[in-house]
Amino acid sequence: MNESVRSVLLVGVGGQGTIMASDILSAVMINAGFDVKKSEVHGMAQRGGSVSSHVRFGPKVYSPLAGKGDVSILVSFEKLETLRYLEYLKPDGKVIINNEEIYPPSVNLGEALYPGDAIDFIKNHFKDVKVVDATAMALRSGDKRMANTVILGVLSSCLDIEVDIWEDVLKESFPSKILEGNINAFSLGRGV
């Protein structure tokens, strides 16, 4: 793997704003002067399926997709989805998890169990794991849908990029009505 390129993998459930978060991250990295590529699978994302978005940045990026074992930071908007993508992480990779459970259909039907010990399992295999109550924090900013902005705030504290660059992109990304709430949610996350 190309060592000068860093990969962030954002995962979640359709409708959680995973792709929007990866758009914001990509814009930040462009403004910070990096070459950026990103890739995700569209299609039926609105329909509650598993969603993943790769963002890669560096002086020169070729592949928009990260391979297994190549991801520096796994950003997960839902606990179970974190487990699905762990194999993409570098052995010393970082994990940021929104402490939220969204049951897939088989769990709702009582045919499968939602893994209860997901966080312990991840902590047993990776050293740097941040679990964030992003939904509760987003509620404090006025709307639980801002949970993805809280998580972006947490992510920003793991990347060496000036906060002004983040805030400029947030300003371009949200309509003025919900901008203040999102800036607030971002700051809460950044303070975690």
Binding site: G43, G48, G49, L80, L83, P104, P105, F121
Partner: peptide, 10 residues
Amino acid sequence: LSLPQRPPNL
């Protein structure tokens, strides 16, 4: 881990 799948749904 044999995780429960999360296919898209109606």
